[in-house]
Amino acid sequence: MTVLLEARGVTKYFGGVQALKDVSLTINAGEIYGLIGPNGAGKTTFFNALTGLYQRDGGEIGFCGAALRLSSPHEVAKAGIARTFQNIRLFANMTARENVMVGRHSRTRAGVVGAVLRDRATRAEEAALRRRADELLRYVGIEHRADDIARHLAYGDQRRLEIARALATDPKLLALDEPAAGMNATETASLKSLIEGLRADGLTVLLIEHDVKLVMGLCDRVAVLDYGEKIAEDVPASVQRNPKVIEAYLGGAA
């Protein structure tokens, strides 16, 4: 098994609060890796530190065998880590297709001159971009909403659109921040099969999730964060029995 992402000692402070304490974890290529923990444990902070939205105060992240430097989000996206957001962040007034097309920004090249002259290369790129966007919309199952404004989409479809947009960046690692939040049982089940499909197609997935059933049924390995520290990392079944994890979730046993 090859290691895709290796985080070593990732640390983040907010003022005097240490939100991440020396978090180290490795994600293997092709697996679904779960990141769980009680509210405020630092899961999203880790995501943000990973994707360049926050500058890390310490630690290193290796990705695809190379060091991922303290870099800006667009560079992280270009390196091959795509993400979704806990509270959906779509381009609300653009169509579903345009949302996905924006996702391919770093994989396309056309500049101002190309846009104005619309030369052959630009037209070809634009056509390919459109085709790819439609393909991805079909892949996540919302191709019939391609021309609708993103904010008119149903909640579950918005989640799917965000995943399609993330996929448009051609990621090697897809980081999903609570994709099932606010979904009903049916929607969650179809999300699960979508994520399984992603893995089957060779993608590596990092998943933050509160829905324990989803995490246990889906993930190959799970890490548990509590107060910014990693307290466990193992296959779901043994994490579930880990006394430290139970204590973190249920509070200290008397």
């Binding site: 939205l53 989000p73 996206a77």
Partner: peptide, 17 residues
């Protein structure tokens, strides 16, 4: 499209590369 994306949500635009 990149301009409009920034107008709509700058953080998401960054995450899109």
């Amino acid at each position: 499209r990149a301009w409009v994306a920034i107008r709509e949500d700058e953080i998401a635009a960054k995450a899109c590369g």
